[in-house]
Design a protein around this nucleic acid. Structure first.
Length: 281
DNA sequence: CCCTCTGTTGGATT
DNA sequence: CAATCCAACAGAGG
């Protein structure tokens, strides 16, 4: 799953691949990948992909969505789900797990490759408006902690699941939400009203740089293969998937617990548990 | 080989 | 967004 940084890295690549080119068609290998709305359910798929011909327009990226244009306003949104990526293939081969492709006038094709099939292509009449529908501002777009905190007014629950709510703030996923909380020293289960002002300030100030660094870490040149977690070497994250390993800051053993249905990792020393939260094992 | 567990998404249900 | 279940599948570990 691509979160904001990996989706942005894909968008930049697609922008390069499509610059100055034209669409010549699409290939629908898995019709269930083409859905009427942003859904993770293949059973909702099967809609028409629309007409793809003529100059490639600009490539948009908002939160975890990519927008491609076919014509002045219309086109499609792409969501990568958990395991999706966009890969360029020179020639007519169908890559393993290739679901859908946009064909270009240089003989190449941009493939939505997705083993798990939560990713989707959503044809829309107006890319610019559809791509922001239902989303809060991107996580890297807050001028200060006050405006960031304002997105969470009225929210009582633990901070980490709240950070994942795309209607409040766009682009954060399980990994980067956990990483950000480690950076600012807030326990993932701390109730939103108990998050100190200084932590909101630190998040608003830090997120743009942290997320851009993660984009660059994806690398500009590879063909789109996922190397987010599993491929290409060591885990690049501070706490994600590091249960029992020493905290990079203080060496205390990282803890893991399921919060809001998602694996969550934190440092018990840098991120003290909120009052009344019993440590489970 | 088989079974169980985990998971970068998000939505529905209870 | 409180917790749980689900979509659909790969990969790791026992």
């Amino acid at each position: 799953m691509p979160e904001l940084p990996e989706v942005e890295a894909h968008a930049r690549r697609v922008r390069r691949w499509t610059a100055g080119r034209s669409w010549v068609g699409v290939r629908v290998v898995d019709p269930t990948a083409v859905r009427p709305g942003m859904s993770t359910r293949p059973s909702e798929g099967g809609v028409s992909p629309g007409v793809w011909s003529g100059p490639c327009g600009g490539v948009l990226r908002v939160a975890k969505r990519v927008g491609l244009r076919a014509g002045p306003t219309g086109g499609a949104l792409v969501h990568l789900g958990m395991t999706g990526h966009l890969s360029r293939v020179l020639g007519g081969d169908v890559p393993r797990f290739g679901r859908f492709a946009w064909q270009l006038d240089d003989g190449s094709a941009i493939w939505l490759v997705d083993a798990r099939r939560f990713g989707c292509v959503v044809p829309v009449d107006d890319v610019a408006s559809a791509i922001v529908a239902g989303l809060g501002p991107d996580a890297d777009a807050f001028a200060d902690g006050t405006s960031l905190a304002a997105r969470f007014r009225g929210c009582r629950g633990p901070i980490k699941p709240a950070l994942l709510d795309q209607a409040r703030v766009g682009g954060l996923g399980n990994i980067h939400a956990g990483e950000a909380l480690w950076r600012v020293g807030v326990h993932p289960r701390r109730p939103v009203p108990e998050v100190p002002e200084a932590a909101w300030d630190a998040l608003a100030a830090g997120l743009p740089g942290w997320l851009e660094a993660a984009v660059l870490n994806e690398g500009p040149d590879h063909d789109g293969d996922l190397r987010y977690v599993s491929e290409g070497g060591a885990n690049p994250f501070f706490v994600y998937d590091r249960e029992g390993q020493p905290c990079p800051r203080c060496a205390a053993p990282i803890q893991r617990e399921v919060i809001g249905g998602r694996g969550s990792w934190w440092c018990p020393a840098c991120q003290p548990a909120p009052c009344g939260s019993a440590a489970v094992r």
